[in-house]
């Protein structure tokens, strides 16, 4: 068990100035890890919310600090924004008596496929998987965004397992489009899992409109009285729409793993007898 009572963990999320649910999973995972006491202290930091990346290091007592990006993939944020705003020198930064350990994003974790399958099974219980098309929705488009690459990697892994009738990548703004889901799927049941960190603007408000299960983007998840109820019967199929993969509670385990992985890869851990 990874136990670092003299270290701090900072989980970095994107956050949003518009959607109150964007940061929720990051805070949720932080609270789980706080209760587990795996670290002496646990903090969150955000690009678009508070505490900001420029503020968070002031909040840390410890001299040994693990920084885990709660991002679905490597990309502009993990390679440019976070290192720049935290003034990191690389994976390992020594500054003002502190050691800052910049870990890999959560989305890189090898168990991501397992979590996607778990989520798909939960949203459509009892539905024979061989009669299901499984769609993993990514963002796509952004030149610096590797989320499409990461989503493809996950789809390849899941497809190779041969559990589902068919497995596809789909995107909001590039082909194959999520809005045309009924054109390229052939199974009677279609399960859609958003490959996103939060049920924020994209996965809670935009994608349901693209799928055709909502008429307009409506309010944020936390500001609605009634949550969605699966399944949806439309376009001659039965559609199941899952919450964003980043809301999966097991994500907190993955965050912990990424910190442990850092020590393995950088040999900074010197266990005492």
């Amino acid at each position: 068990m990874f136990h670092k009572p003299d270290s701090a963990l900072i989980i970095v999320g994107h956050g949003s100035t518009v959607n109150p649910d964007s940061s929720a999973p990051t805070f949720d995972h932080a609270e789980v890890l706080l209760r587990q006491k795996a670290f002496g202290e646990v903090h969150c930091a955000f690009w678009k919310e508070e505490p900001s990346l420029r503020q968070v290091l002031h909040m840390v007592d410890s001299e040994d600090v693990y920084i885990v990006p709660n991002f679905i993939s490597e990309g502009y944020f993990t390679r440019t924004i976070i290192p720049r705003e935290l003034e990191l020198d690389g994976p390992l930064t020594h500054r003002n008596g502190r050691t800052l350990k910049y870990c890999e994003p959560v989305g890189n974790h090898a168990r991501m496929s397992e979590l996607l399958l778990k989520r798909a099974a939960e949203v459509a219980p009892g539905v024979p998987t061989k009669e299901c098309s499984l769609l993993i929705v990514g963002h796509g488009t952004n030149l610096n965004d590797n989320s499409a690459f990461a989503a493809k990697r996950e789809v390849d892994r899941i497809r190779d397992m041969g559990l589902y009738g068919e497995v596809f990548n789909t995107y909001m703004e590039e082909a194959p489009l999520v809005s045309e889901w009924d054109a390229y799927t052939t199974c009677p049941n279609v399960i859609v899992v958003p490959f996103f960190i939060a049920d924020g603007l994209h996965s809670y408000q935009d994608i349901p409109v693209l799928l055709g299960i909502e008429q307009d983007t409506g309010l944020a998840a936390s500001q609605r009285d009634i949550f969605r109820l699966n399944p949806y019967h439309l376009r001659g199929r039965t559609l199941y729409y899952a919450s964003a993969i980043g809301t999966e509670p097991l994500f907190s385990d993955l965050i912990l793993d990424q910190a442990a992985l850092f020590d393995t890869q950088h040999s900074t851990s010197h266990p005492t007898a």
Binding site: H43, P51, S52, R54, Q55, V56, H58
Partner: peptide, 26 residues
């Protein structure tokens, strides 16, 4: 501390840094 970090993120920490002479305005 946890509660105040939700209500006013980083604000107690910045005050601590200011008192310690460690806060650099940008």
């Amino acid at each position: 501390r946890i509660a105040l970090d939700y209500f006013y993120p980083a604000m107690t920490a910045l005050w601590q840094s200011q008192l310690a002479g460690e806060l650099r305005p940008v």
